[in-house]
């Protein structure tokens, strides 16, 4: 995520005085901010989806108890085709921990794993939201400045027009 653009982070290091920027620069800054906020929203949406997936897996574990050993289940071979099967092991599950590695864990261990993952992803969402709120604030301020500058330009134009009118 960390792109090395010309620093648009007034809070980091160099401070940029917004009122010193020209209208063009302000518009550019606003565009960039809009883009960044969009990326943040997109990212947090993806993270939320991942969180739901972990939560779903966690919920599924509630259904598996040592009692379920030997119980009949339907195993999906594809999304639309199932074969009957039997739970061979109700004590442990195998979970995907990424990069092709799978580990066997007992039910409690697996629940713990998914809970940790859910809270980890939650923390990341939290972080992104914080930055996103900051950016939105900055975006609002920039939008105001643009508005002010536009108004100033407009009124000075009108004034000069009036002056012309009174001259003639």
């Amino acid at each position: 995520m960390a792109t090395k653009e010309e620093s648009v982070f007034p809070q980091v290091g160099q401070q940029i005085e917004l009122s010193n920027l020209s209208l063009q620069q302000l518009t550019q800054l606003k565009q960039q901010l809009d883009q960044e906020i969009h990326v943040f929203l997109e990212t947090s949406r993806t993270l939320k989806m991942a969180q739901t997936k972990f939560q779903d897996s966690n919920d599924c574990l509630e259904k598996i108890t040592p009692d379920s050993e030997g119980k009949n289940i339907m195993v999906p071979l594809t999304g639309s085709m199932y074969v009957p099967g039997r739970v061979a092991n109700g004590k442990s599950v195998i979970i995907d921990i990424g990069t092709g590695y799978f580990i066997q864990k007992d039910i409690d261990g697996a629940k713990d794993y998914f809970k940790r993952k859910v809270s980890f992803v939650g923390e990341q969402i939290e972080k992104i939201m914080q930055v996103s709120v900051e950016k939105s604030k900055l975006n609002k301020v920039v939008a105001q400045k643009i508005q002010l500058q536009l108004q100033a330009q407009l009124s000075s134009q009108q004034q000069s027009q009036q002056q012309e009118a009174t001259k003639s």
Binding site: G100, Y101, F102, I103, Q104
Partner: peptide, 8 residues
């Protein structure tokens, strides 16, 4: 003693 698998 945990079991680890790799998806190949």
């Amino acid at each position: 003693d945990a079991e680890v698998f790799k998806l190949i």
